[in-house]
Simulated assay, not measured.
Amino acid sequence: MTTFPTAHTTTVSNPRLRLLNKLKAGEFPLATFMAIPSVRHAQIVSLTGLDAVIVDCEHGNIGDDAMHNSVAAIAAQGVSPIIRVRGTTGDILKRALDTGAHGVMIPQINTAAEAEQVVRYSKFPPQGLRGQGSAFPSIAHGLTTPEYMLSANQTLLTIVQIETKAGVENVEEICAVDGVDLVFIGPNDLAQSLLGYVPARGDEPEFVAAIDKIAKAAKAAGKWSGRLVNNGALANKAKGTFDFVAITGDTKAISLWYQQEIEVVRSS
C-alpha cells in the first residue's frame, strides 16, 4: 500500500501555515471559534495574537460568502484559517477547502469509516477524490495553483472531532486512519452524549476517562490532539496533555466581557 506524506511527515516548508508550523515545532498553538460573519470582525479576532481562527460553519452564522471573506481576512493577517464544516460529504469539504483554508475541522466523527470518507474528499488524487477548478485556494497559501496542487495533500490539516460516546468507543480506529492529522474534543457535545447534560463539571469519572482515552489514543497513533477550553487558565492546564487548544469563541468572549464589566459598575 502506498504511504503518502502527511502534515506530520511533510518536508514542505511554508511560513504562511502558522498553525501547522507551530504544531510541528511543539509550540502549543492557540485558536478560537468565530461565529460572526464579518471581514472586519475576522481581522480583529486575527490581530489578538492567536495562531488560528476556526470559522464555524457548523453552528455559526457563516454562509458561503462570509466563509470565503473570513478566510481571506484571517490569512492576510498571517494567521491560519480553519473551517469547521457541517458534514462529511464531498461537496461540503470541497467548498470549504476551495476558500484557501489551511485545514478543515469535521464534527461528530463516530467511526473510522467516517474519518476515511473525510480524508478521501479532502485529498487530491491519487490519494483522494477532491476536485480542482478554483483559483482561490492557493491565494491564502501564497502559492501558484500548481504549487498548491503539489503541496495541499500534505500540508492541509484534517481535524476530526470526537464528541460522542460512539466516537470515544472507536477513537483508536479513528486515530489510526491515514490522513487524519489532529483529533479534537468537543467537550459540550461529549458531555451531553456521555452524561446527558452540559456543561460537565469536569470531574465526572466517565467524562474524565473519555478525555484521557482520546488524548492517549491520539498520542499512541502519532497524531496531534486538541480540545476546547473556556479560558487561558484552563488552556495552561491542558499543556502537556494536548498539543493545541481553542479558547472559547467570539460570541461568548464578547458577552462575558460586557457582563463582567457591567457587573463591576453595578456592584460598586
Rank of each mutant, 00 (worst) to 15 (best):
D181E: 02
E116T: 10
G78H: 14
G49Q: 11
L150W: 06
I62F: 09
E172Q: 11
D212M: 03
F33G: 00
F244C: 01
L150G: 13
M67S: 08
L47R: 11
F207P: 02
D65F: 12
L97I: 12
S138K: 05
G196P: 09
E173G: 07
Y121V: 15
V85K: 10
L234G: 00
E169H: 11
M1A: 12
N69S: 09
F242R: 07
F242D: 14
A7P: 03
Q43Y: 13
E204K: 02
M67P: 04
A76Y: 12
G26C: 15
E163K: 02
S13W: 06
I82H: 04
L47H: 08
A7I: 07
A166Q: 14
A7G: 05
G133K: 11
Q117W: 00
Q43A: 03
V71E: 05
G222C: 03
G131N: 04
Q154R: 11
N231W: 04
G222H: 00
G131W: 00
L30Q: 09
W224A: 04
I254S: 07
I185N: 06
A166I: 02
H68L: 13
A176I: 02
A253G: 07
S267N: 14
R130K: 08
I54L: 14
E163D: 14
T9Q: 03
G26H: 08
R40A: 09
G49Y: 13
G87M: 06
L97R: 12
H41P: 00
G26A: 12
A72Q: 11
I159M: 10
K24V: 07
A76K: 13
A52E: 06
A115P: 03
S255E: 04
I74Q: 06
R95D: 11
Y258L: 15
T164V: 04
A73C: 08
I62S: 00
